[in-house]
Design a binder for these strands. Structure first.
Lengths: 234, 234
DNA sequence: AGAATAGTGTCTGTAAGACATTATACA
DNA sequence: TGTATAATGTCTTACAGACACTATTCT
């Protein structure tokens, strides 16, 4: 093992913040400091260095950086695929522990964060540029979200408080990029047991809609039997 | 950012080596150095420190450590979920980038590696102890393998050269812990296009069986339509 | 002939998805 | 009365899984 820190890489956390706003997915970016050694003043994913004197865990690193640098606490987080190499950061050998973060009303208001439509980063021909390997991270995050929107109730985390089933369905439709059949969607959600009726209702356009809330604790429910994990049937 | 390396965590790679031997899954462990500062002489997952002067990438770190410390090169690797905290390593704040590694005949012969049945680490009541958080990593690795044995052809990597469909089926059965229907399995593999007939055949017990080989490059084919990723249908 | 294995054809139960209907609110 | 939405009942169909059958090889 190395006796000094000389050969240690830079260790960072990067956060792909996603929210649903105006019927579309948006990515949250922060402007890097004007005196940053690299990519000064450029919009980038929020994140920061692991600091062993401040954090108990890598999860702490994420939350500390998001709280201090953008003033938000994600409603939910998912670990993405780590990466580490000599080239991703001009400052030197670095490792990133990337997170996908679900942002909703409970996450707080941020002055520092700027929101951009996710679509401009998914375009195959001319995606908006991002520093480091942040474009790859954004795409990886969406890829995960997209797949989970098919089989899990994780997208529920984009909503908080009381909401209607139509509003929830819209969340899934935005992520999946296509219309869903109402009855099928309701059956899925019903089977998942991920939400519960608040007892209240509200008038939506020309009809009365029941209100629901996410059940606590919110589990990552997978719909399909075929996706059930190990340990449950042998 | 930190001006010194003082607050940097230890960065390691840990490898969950799996092979199929005597009709069961086995985990490869190495005995830690007798003069190691912690867990000296104890059996543990192979791995090592990221060394920025030797490695171009985290993948290099993995391959360098496996080559030098156990003398093997995995047939295939999959990134597992990163973790980092103050407590997993008695030496201090550390981050692990864990890999699941598929070992087969092409991986080479190792003097240093000791193989143990995976089952003894999966037992819910009295699993064999492992240092650090290595037990968790082993279980996470198997969990991934188990799930992928249902929908992908990744388990093919446990075989090399020419093999029969029955041999391949046995691999999947060992991972899934249950018998599979021959015709269904063959249809799955056929649809996946992951293997090709070598043209040769061999006599197995009382019948002649066709020989197959993994197709190059070997893609991680997912069987079910429902598991198809984003970007393919909109 | 009998046993064991490779290889292939066919059937069925289930559940995801498509479609249809009713109830309600309001202009 | 017409329209838009919530909410729920029913139908279709694709496919995973179950089952059956034939061919071949060897004792």
């Amino acid at each position: 093992m190395p006796d000094s820190d000389y050969n240690k890489p830079i260790c960072t956390v990067d956060a792909v913040l996603l929210r649903i706003h105006n019927a579309q997915l948006e990515v949250g970016l922060v402007k890097r400091a004007d005196d940053a050694r690299v990519y000064a003043g450029v919009l980038a994913l929020p994140g920061g260095f692991v600091q062993t004197d401040k954090d108990q865990s890598i999860n702490d690193t994420l939350l500390r950086n998001l709280k201090s640098k953008v003033g938000l606490t994600p409603a939910h987080t998912v670990k993405l695929e780590f990466d580490g190499n000599l080239s991703r950061d001009p400052e030197g050998w670095s490792i990133t522990c990337p997170y996908l973060c679900f942002i909703n009303q409970t996450s707080g208001k941020s002055e520092q964060l700027h929101w951009f439509p996710l679509s401009q980063f998914l375009a195959e021909d001319t995606p908006t540029a991002l520093p480091f390997d942040h474009l790859k991270l954004v795409r990886d995050g969406f890829f995960r979200l997209y797949n989970r929107a098919k089989y899990s109730t994780e997208p529920n985390h984009f909503l908080n408080g009381a909401f209607t089933l139509s509003e929830l369905q819209q969340v899934y439709e935005i992520i999946l990029g296509k219309a869903l059949h109402k009855k099928n969607f309701r059956d899925r959600i019903d089977e998942s047991n991920s939400i519960e009726a608040t007892g209240d209702s509200k008038i939506v356009k020309r009809s009365r809609a029941q209100l629901f809330a996410n059940r606590q604790p919110m589990s990552t429910h997978f719909f399909s039997r075929v996706l059930q994990g190990a340990f449950d049937d042998h």
